[in-house]
Design a protein around this nucleic acid. Structure first.
Lengths: 367, 367
DNA sequence: AAAATCTACTAAAACGATTTAGTAAAAGCG
DNA sequence: CGCTTTTACTAAATCGTTTTAGTAGATTTT
């Protein structure tokens, strides 16, 4: 058990010599003009058009020279713009969230925006509470990542993997139909007919849409989905364990299958562990298709075949559309829906199906 | 290539009916008292001691009834407290960062704090720029995660895995000596003498301290560190690829070894891939010890033996000490250093060393 | 030459809190 | 009763901007 140990010797006094930041008033006094003038000039207001360039130069120079930075709160108080977004995520975890957040980051930073994060961990009361806290913080808008929005909010919202049709929200979603088609087509081409599925947790935004698409695609390929071969993820841990448990349930049903299409890479990894413990080799005995293409999918053993979601891009799009909405003002038109395309990435976890159910007999577990 | 497609039909007007938030002045008018009084009472200022409980109750009730929430920027402007921390990270990635951020989150939220994040991606100019942006944003302090702080900053700093001795910063570090001892002791007990190492990137805060501890521990166990068996991670990708490349270099040296101690789990995973491609089995031919114990270390194939860092806890400690420092005021004493303890987690990637260099002959790669 | 327009600014009122210095009325004290 | 103290408040300044409505003087127009 790790224990912390606070260094007894190491106490310090923080005699910090913050040289006070210079205010607009001080700067104005310095150049011998009024704060109003400086504000107008520095913000390039059209009202300042009549001011001679020489004066403007003088002002800009002084601002640079004295390292003037407008006071954030003072400005926000006046303008009612905080240049801050709220980001609502289930948790900060390896796979999905991190990638989306990086995309958001990249867009925001170049627009001079920052974001504050809140993790609701699927707790209903937090899902309610956080938008209020964001409102208190005067965010200009929020991005919800894999988080259900159940009622309209008093600021613009972009929802990554959002599927609810709520006033004021822009949903950024994957083309799930195509994703399901890609996965099943790949498996069918390899000769798989008995396919098992791991559905997402009930609280995951994509679960339902994805499942509907899978059923549709299965119909298209004339594959029957056997109830015994469908397991659902339970619990909100971001570890592969939930996939491991779901796969155990699948195996316990003793209904033969030659392939698994998992809800995401993390659960696919857990499932692989379960299969191997049960004595099945992946992909020789059972093929596994993941979803997302997270960082380590390519380096897992075996390397995961997966449906790639452009997560980074989805984050970028969310940030971008939200910023545009904010810039355009509250009652301009905005897209209700942006769809992005998946991509099949074939690696080592899928191969041709073994003929006539040989693999389906449960073997002795190898340890 | 994923393409985005913005739904042509789906345009909406955002006729949002934000009912304006109530201000202190309005609330005051409503209860028939002055804003001053309300402020004093609501903030439980000692100045309000003389105000009868009945009046206080009336005020609190009205505040609740009219759902009064103090305006964030107005308050911050006056009090010069933003209840916001800046968090500086290399990037938001699966392993290290996410876990630490979760720890930070948990502490901050219960203290009514939020944080803004900036990813510097090891770019020198961003490392310089972000603290300034944080200052502009009036943060009350910053937490630097795996990020070098090279000069004093005008606000309190907590550095997770920080090793530089700078005025005003609290370093939260792992007991690297012990970590190195745990890893080498484990390997030595399994009979390993020829051990390869992957050092961290030059820009990683822990690289140097860890390496020094490893050398010390090696001396202790009378293990010689051969230069040909030391590779360093290069490049700032958070993918296992950098470990894969380093391991390739190790193999290219054609100097036999029976075990690898990697800088972190991610690079260990990359290295395992490289070993397997070269025809070595892990752990039968070469044992691998990782570092960190990230989420998927336990589910990798083989499951990673690793040195666990209490990352979540380190995040908590950083947040906690920083909040305390802020609460205590700028010139109170504070700890310079907090040390946390590592833990050896033995899984499947290590086993007894093969005797007399049999494993060290390079085999045919298996595909 | 008077009126209209421009030019180059500024005064002052917000924004929505907090906080210091009071003050009027009531209570306590000798 | 007169004096001090306490009680229950409030006025007004302040934080650092932005922005609207002017204004004084110069220039142009008629």
């Amino acid at each position: 058990m790790p224990r912390k140990k606070s260094d007894a010797r190491g106490k310090k006094k923080g005699g910090s010599s913050h040289k006070r930041a210079v205010s607009l008033k001080e700067l104005a006094a310095h150049v011998g003009l009024s704060p109003s003038t400086l504000s107008l000039v520095l913000n390039e207001s059209p009202v300042a058009d009549s001011i001679p360039q020489a004066t403007k130069d003088r002002i800009f120079e002084a601002a640079k020279g004295m390292n003037y930075r407008p006071h954030f709160h003072a400005r926000s108080l006046r303008t009612k713009r905080s240049h801050t977004l709220g980001v609502l995520v289930p948790e900060i975890s390896g796979g999905y969230t991190a990638e989306v957040m990086n995309g958001i980051e990249e867009q925001l930073l170049k627009a001079g925006y920052f974001y504050i994060v809140a993790c609701h961990r699927h707790k209903a009361e937090l899902l309610d509470e956080y938008p209020k806290l964001f409102l208190d913080r005067c965010v200009d808008g929020i991005i919800a990542v894999d988080t259900p929005i159940t009622h309209p909010l008093p600021f613009p919202v972009a929802a990554v993997s959002g599927h609810s049709d709520i006033e004021g929200v822009t949903n950024i979603v994957l083309n799930h139909r195509r994703a399901a088609m890609l996965a099943l087509e790949h498996l069918v081409k390899l000769g798989h007919r008995r396919i098992a599925f791991i559905k997402g947790q009930v609280f995951s935004s994509d679960t339902e849409a994805r499942w509907n698409s899978i059923r549709e695609a299965a119909r298209e390929f004339e594959i029957t989905i056997r109830p015994a071969l469908v397991a659902q993820l339970k619990g909100d841990s971001p570890s592969p364990e939930v996939g491991y448990i779901a796969a155990k349930r699948l195996l316990a049903a003793r209904e033969p299958f030659t392939a698994l299409f998992a809800f995401n890479d993390i659960s696919a990894i857990g499932a692989i562990r379960a299969f191997q413990e049960a004595g099945f080799r992946v992909p020789e005995d059972v093929s596994v298709v993941g979803f997302d293409d997270v960082d380590n999918a390519a380096f897992h053993n075996p390397a995961l075949t997966t449906i790639r979601q452009p997560l980074y891009e989805m984050g970028q799009i969310a940030a971008e559309t939200l910023l545009r909405r904010i810039a355009n003002g509250d009652d301009a038109a905005f897209p209700e829906l942006v769809t992005v395309e998946p991509e099949l990435v074939v690696r080592q976890s899928t191969s041709t199906a073994k003929e006539n159910g040989k693999s389906q007999r449960r073997k002795q577990a190898n340890r």
